[in-house]
Simulated scan of single mutants.
Amino acid sequence: MSVPKRLVKTVLERDQYECMIAGPRCLGVATEPDHRANRGMGGSTVLDKPHCLIAACGICNGDKTAATGAWRAELIERGVIVEKAATNRETALRCLYTPVVDRRGRLWFLLPGGTRVESTDPLF
């Protein structure tokens, strides 16, 4: 099951078509949404929410799936990867409360309605 086209547009526009993953082979320009938490097999759409998705280039989207070691740890620390909880609903809440750090080091909270808010909290 793919992400609805309207939601794809919302995520890409929200992230200003900038790849939020920013991996070593990054193209920079985002062309698709990426689930922060692996949706897994099956038809659940619980994780098809704006706060569970980030904009990504095709290369980073594929590379993130195979990320291991230090790079995976960095992606988790930056909120690009959100580890699964016991249920998809709990995982969606983790996405809501886990900010994303972009390639420039800015910290964003992704909101359910499809917007993002930059944090100015010095604790982050």
Score class of each variant (00 low, 15 high):
residue 8 V to Y: 02
residue 10 T to N: 05
residue 11 V to K: 08
residue 14 R to C: 13
residue 14 R to G: 14
residue 15 D to C: 05
residue 15 D to S: 07
residue 15 D to T: 08
residue 16 Q to D: 15
residue 16 Q to L: 15
residue 16 Q to M: 06
residue 16 Q to T: 13
residue 16 Q to V: 12
residue 17 Y to E: 13
residue 17 Y to Q: 08
residue 17 Y to M: 12
residue 18 E to M: 08
residue 18 E to G: 08
residue 19 C to V: 05
residue 19 C to R: 05
residue 19 C to N: 02
residue 20 M to Y: 01
residue 21 I to N: 08
residue 21 I to F: 02
residue 22 A to T: 07
residue 24 P to S: 04
residue 25 R to Q: 02
residue 25 R to W: 01
residue 26 C to L: 15
residue 27 L to C: 09
residue 27 L to G: 12
residue 27 L to V: 09
residue 28 G to C: 11
residue 28 G to T: 11
residue 28 G to I: 14
residue 28 G to F: 12
residue 29 V to I: 15
residue 30 A to Q: 13
residue 32 E to S: 14
residue 32 E to R: 13
residue 32 E to V: 14
residue 32 E to H: 14
residue 33 P to T: 09
residue 34 D to S: 15
residue 35 H to I: 10
residue 36 R to V: 07
residue 37 A to N: 08
residue 37 A to I: 13
residue 39 R to Q: 11
residue 39 R to E: 06
residue 39 R to F: 00
residue 42 G to A: 09
residue 44 S to C: 06
residue 44 S to H: 06
residue 48 D to T: 05
residue 50 P to W: 00
residue 50 P to E: 02
residue 53 L to W: 07
residue 53 L to D: 07
residue 56 A to F: 05
residue 56 A to K: 06
residue 57 C to L: 01
residue 59 I to E: 03
residue 60 C to D: 04
residue 60 C to T: 04
residue 61 N to K: 09
residue 61 N to T: 07
residue 61 N to R: 11
residue 61 N to F: 03
residue 62 G to H: 05
residue 63 D to M: 13
residue 65 T to K: 12
residue 65 T to C: 03
residue 65 T to I: 10
residue 67 A to T: 13
residue 67 A to N: 10
residue 69 G to W: 03
residue 69 G to H: 08
residue 70 A to N: 07
residue 70 A to G: 01
residue 72 R to P: 14
residue 72 R to N: 10
residue 74 E to M: 12
residue 75 L to D: 06
residue 75 L to K: 10
residue 75 L to S: 08
residue 75 L to E: 08
residue 76 I to A: 03
residue 78 R to F: 03
residue 80 V to C: 05
residue 80 V to A: 04
residue 81 I to G: 12
residue 82 V to D: 01
residue 84 K to D: 01
residue 85 A to W: 00
residue 85 A to S: 04
residue 85 A to R: 09
residue 86 A to P: 04
residue 87 T to A: 11
residue 87 T to W: 04
residue 87 T to P: 04
residue 89 R to E: 15
residue 89 R to W: 02
residue 89 R to I: 00
residue 92 A to S: 15
residue 93 L to R: 10
residue 93 L to C: 00
residue 94 R to N: 05
residue 97 Y to T: 15
residue 99 P to W: 01
residue 100 V to M: 08
residue 101 V to R: 15
